[in-house]
């Protein structure tokens, strides 16, 4: 394996994690990552040595995701929000971690794709705002406004489901 290949492989766990968090279907997420790798290898001559491999790969993944989402015309299912509200009544204050995990996962799913992407790139993948802007090909001001709106919205959803009472583990 040469250095460039190593650089790509180093990013695979993050690409997979991000794709899984983004589309919530492990199999489709891995398909997306595979497609991303195929495309990256096919266009490796376009990658400038020394430039940011991580943002390059994530931007390829993002573009493939957008194309696939457009093809399937799949929008996040906001109608299920009522179902989330209903769970408030059955939840105990002392929720276990598994329940919390499903909640964050599910709460994220109620955000529009463009908010979820920013929240995950910043909060999960810890890309800088500038890197996030590069990946999504949007101005940094748009990153900040999506981040703000996404976080406000996620807070409302999580508060509604009662998970904000969970103790903080850090």
């Amino acid at each position: 394996m040469n250095d460039t290949q190593k650089l790509i492989v180093e990013n695979i766990p993050n690409l997979r994690r991000y794709a899984k968090a983004l589309i919530r279907d492990n199999e489709k997420a891995d398909d997306l990552v595979q497609d991303c790798l195929v495309r990256a290898i096919g266009r490796l001559h376009l990658w400038e040595p020394g430039s940011n491999m991580r943002t390059w790969l994530f931007s390829i993944l993002h573009n493939l995701h957008v194309n696939a989402a457009r093809r399937q015309n799949s929008q996040p299912d906001n109608t299920a929000l009522e179902a989330v509200h209903e769970t408030v009544n059955v939840m105990q204050p002392d929720q276990d971690k598994g329940l919390m995990i499903r909640d964050v996962d599910r709460a994220l799913n109620h955000l529009p794709d463009e908010h979820r992407e920013v929240l995950l790139l910043v909060g999960l993948e810890q890309l800088s705002y500038a890197e996030t802007a590069e990946v999504l090909d949007i101005p940094i001001g748009t990153v900040m406004s999506r981040l703000n709106r996404g976080r406000i919205r996620l807070r409302v959803i999580l508060d509604t489901t009662g998970t904000s009472h969970l103790r903080r583990v850090k």
Partner: peptide, 15 residues
Amino acid sequence: QLQNSKIGQTFNQML
């Protein structure tokens, strides 16, 4: 901050 830490806890094991 709590959101970030929950997101991390939820998805980190995938790494």
